[in-house]
Simulated scan of single mutants.
Amino acid sequence: MWNIAVKNERTTEDIALGIRRRVFEHAMRNNGGYLSQACSSAEQLAWLYNEELNLGAPTLPMIPKPFEGVPHADNPDYHTGAGYNGPFEPEYDRLFIAPAHYALVAYATLIETGRMAAEGLEMFNKDGSSVEMIGAEHSPGMEVHNGTLGIGLSTAAGLAWARKRKGEKGRVWVYMSDGEVQEGQTWEAIQCCAHHRIDNVKAIMDVNRQQCDGAMDSVMEVGDIKTKMENFGAVVVEVDAHNVNDMREAAKTKHDGKPLIILANSNPFHAMPILEERFPRLHYVRFKSEEERARMNISIADSLGVDPIDYAH
Rank of each mutant, 00 (worst) to 15 (best):
P90G: 09
G69K: 00
G83Y: 03
T59K: 12
P64D: 15
P90R: 02
A46R: 09
M62F: 13
N85K: 08
G56M: 07
L95Y: 14
E43K: 03
A73E: 01
S40A: 05
C39N: 04
E91R: 11
I63E: 15
A38D: 07
Q37M: 01
A38V: 00
R94V: 03
Y92N: 14
P71G: 09
E89K: 11
L60A: 13
A98P: 15
I97H: 14
P76G: 08
E43G: 13
H72M: 07
E51L: 07
E43T: 10
D74Q: 07
D74N: 09
V70N: 05
D74T: 06
G86T: 06
P64A: 13
R94T: 07
N50A: 08
Y49L: 03
F67G: 11
P87W: 06
E52W: 00
P87M: 04
L60G: 15
L55E: 05
N75K: 02
P90M: 03
L95V: 09
R94Q: 08
D77H: 10
L55W: 12
A98I: 04
H72T: 02
K65Q: 15
E68H: 13
P58H: 04
E52M: 06
A98L: 00
K65G: 14
A98G: 15
I63Q: 15
T59Q: 13
T80H: 07
E51A: 12
S36R: 04
E68S: 13
C39L: 00
N75L: 01
P66N: 00
A73C: 02
F88M: 07
I63S: 15
R94Y: 10
P90W: 07
A98W: 09
F67H: 13
T59I: 03
E68L: 08
D77E: 06
G81H: 11
S40E: 00
T59D: 02
S41W: 06
G69H: 05
C39G: 06
P90D: 08
L45R: 06
F96H: 12
